[in-house]
Every structure is written in structure tokens, then in C-alpha cells.
Design a protein around this nucleic acid. Sequence first.
DNA 1: TGTATCCGATACAGTGACGTATCCAATACA
DNA 2: TGTATTGGATACGTCACTGTATCGGATACA
Lengths: 225, 225
Amino acid sequence: MTTTVSTTVSSRRQQTRDRLIDAATELFAEKSIEGASVEEISERAGFTRGAFYSNFDSKEALCLEIVRRRGEELLETTRRALAVIPDAPVSVEWLEEIIAKVVTVLDVGFTLDDNWVLVREELRLYAYRHPTFRPALIEIERDANDLSMQALAAALDRHGASLRIPIDQLMLTLDAFCERTQLDAILAGDPVNGNSWRDGLERLVRAVVMLPPEDDTGAVGRSDQ
Amino acid sequence: MTTTVSTTVSSRRQQTRDRLIDAATELFAEKSIEGASVEEISERAGFTRGAFYSNFDSKEALCLEIVRRRGEELLETTRRALAVIPDAPVSVEWLEEIIAKVVTVLDVGFTLDDNWVLVREELRLYAYRHPTFRPALIEIERDANDLSMQALAAALDRHGASLRIPIDQLMLTLDAFCERTQLDAILAGDPVNGNSWRDGLERLVRAVVMLPPEDDTGAVGRSDQ
DNA sequence: TGTATCCGATACAGTGACGTATCCAATACA
DNA sequence: TGTATTGGATACGTCACTGTATCGGATACA
């Protein structure tokens, strides 16, 4: 139809959508999702309510878009972070290496936006109450998690290291730990440096990873996939 | 002044307060705190808005009361759970013993009410946005945490065991893990049996606790209470 | 330069929650 | 039995939010 026009059109539309999404994300952190009215969101974005409804069917549709975008960002950034991990096993200080990478990857989800933790928490609860929205959140979180998990599994495997607990439980635990630490920090009024919880994260990983049986050169054990 | 009357009066008043609090807790889990109106809370409790405002100054005051009560319940139940832990070191399977107790104690916070996890999450976010409410939540959570933590520390010490990570971090991690596992279960639509996360909890503790250097009889190391 | 389309603003009516002020019934006390 | 007090219900005015329907201006294309 108007395919030629839509390119220029879309760019404008995309911008207002972006601004609406940014404003919404901010407000979701400040007040809750329930607490932030469509009017307020539009206003902060510099538009009126009409513009909002012209771009999104509802607040839920906007939430969905937020999650979708964040999911893409997450996957993208995680991939970049993972690309840095060397394929070949590192002989010296390989544990440090692994831990550093794991921490970096997990960082991703939290470093992107200062109060994303709050919004994420909000979205989780929102999902519980909005059945149509729920599967989207679950799927996206799962995808992001799986990517990091597989990378970690591969890295550990390459270095012949093993874990004291199942890897999926480790991922969940690390994630939950980071989230909680940050929330506590925010509650306490501390700035979210990202430093306080990083140390804890490293300690946690270190405590759960088991070294390979006395191997100094770091030879490869088995490498399926 | 009317001290003699207040006893009889209070009992009636207390009942309506209880009903209001119960209704509110239910609704906070179903809809959010923001999402549950004073009108709806009163209605579910079998009263009208007038009764609500006769008993609480505001929704925030009610939240405060909820947290206060829950805190007391938590401390009380935790104390009972801890009372079961034997003072003397157990020679055989002492690790099992410790783990079981830790799990039990942590259970407390979650077993009391099926969807307390949701309400707790809500309250955490609510606290972030309501500065006057915040310190109450922080204090109560801290008190409950400290009680378990000290008990765990003492138990570990009696048995000469140590941890791979600082004990406060362990407590936070365990708590966060339980919470998250349950939230995930709720999101996935699974019933909150309390079984799925129990296993994980035990594994986690087991992975982090370090046995004393080859001691079969479980002799006491140091015991600075 | 004219015209069609698209996007956001404005106007409007409907809804629901809020907090207060007042009212009624039941209970306590004398 | 009469009176005072207390606990909860009802009624009221206000305000913010929702969603829709209509309008105006800008941009693209001929």
C-alpha cells in the first residue's frame, strides 16, 4: 500500500513511541505500574493522551513492548559479552576468568538502566495479574537466562570445572541475589553503584564452582558441542 | 480516662481490624497495593469505607499494621523453630541436622501464608515509594533475619563448621532464592507446594557449608554463644 | 501549488475512588 | 430505665483517569 511513505512515517512514529516508552519506564519505577496513569506517562513524554492511544492499544500493550525491547537489548548485550570469552581454555587463573565473565554477563541485566530492577519487579507482579501478558515475560526471561547459562556451562566444561549445585539453580540464585541486593540498596537509600553486589556475586560463584582435579595447565576435559 | 471501657471496646474493634487486615492482605496479593481500593478492602471485609477510616488513618497505616503483625508472627514462629535445635553438638549427621533446621527456620517466613510472597514483594516496592513506611519494613525484616542468622551462626559454631561465604550473604541469598523460586512457581501457574524450593534450599546450604576438619564425634570447637 | 494522508491535540462524557461529615444503632454505665 | 459514648453506615462533593470521537496542522507526492 503506502510502503514508500511508511519509512518516513515510521521514523516519526518510532520516536514518539520511544519517548512514551522511556517516560513509562521512568514512571513505573517511581510510582508503580498501577500508579502511573496513561495521562501522566503521555505528559512526561511531552504528549497528550491522544498520542498515547494513537500508538498503543492499552497500558498492557505498552508493557509488552517494554519487555520485548528490553529482551532484545539483553540478548544483544549478552552476546557481545560472551563473544569476549576465549574459546580455548586459559591455563592460568582460568577460574578468575570464568567468574569475571559470569559476573559480566549477569551484570548486563542490571547495568543497562539504574532502576530497571524496580521496573522488572513491577513487571513480574504485573505479569502475575495479567494472563495475556504473562507468557511474554516468561519467554523473554527464559531466553535471556538460557543464553547465559549455556555459555557458562560451555565455559565450565572447557575448563573441566564442575558445580556443587545444578547450573540452572545457580543461575536462578545468582540472578535473585543480584536483584535482591540491589533492591535492598535502593531501599536503604544507597546509590546503586553496582560495586556492593559485584563482590558478593564473585564470592558466590567462587563458592559453588569446583576446581578440576589438580590440573595446572588447564587441559581440556570433554567438549561436547 | 475510660480505661475500664476500653477493654470491651477493644475486643470488638480488634475483630474488625483483623477482618480488614485479612481482606487487605488478600487483595494486595490479587491486585497490587495501589490496585486495591479502600472501598474494595472494606467491602470484602464486610464493612463500608466509613468503618475503614474509623480504624485506620490511611492505607499506609494499614500497611504498617500488616507488617508489624507479620513481623511478630515471624519472630514468634522462628523462636519456636529454633527452640528445637539441640544445644549440644550432634555427633552423627550433624550437617543434616543443621541444614534441616536452617531450612525449617527459613520456611517460617513462607509457610505462614500461601501468597505472602506476593504481598511481601508488594510491600517492598511500596516501601520504596513511601518514605514514612520504609523504616518500619527495613527494621522488621532485619530483626527477623538477625534472629535466624544468629541461630545459624551459633549452630555452625557449635559443630565447628564454617561457610564459604559470609553468613549475612548466605542468609540474603537463601531468602532471595526462596522468594524467587516461589514467585516463578506462581507465575508458571504451579501450586506453591513448598517442595520444589525446599530441595534447592538444601542443596544450596550443603554447597556452602564446610565440614570441620575430619571430626567424627562432633566435638565442640569454641562456643562464644 | 494543490491535495490527500497521517499524526497528534483537544473536547467530551462516563466511571470510580477519595475523604469528610453526618446519621443511626447498639452497648456501657448510673 | 435513661443517657452518653462508641462503632459503623450512608450520603455527598470533588477529582483524576479512561477511552473515544473529532479537529487541525504538517508532510509527501503529483
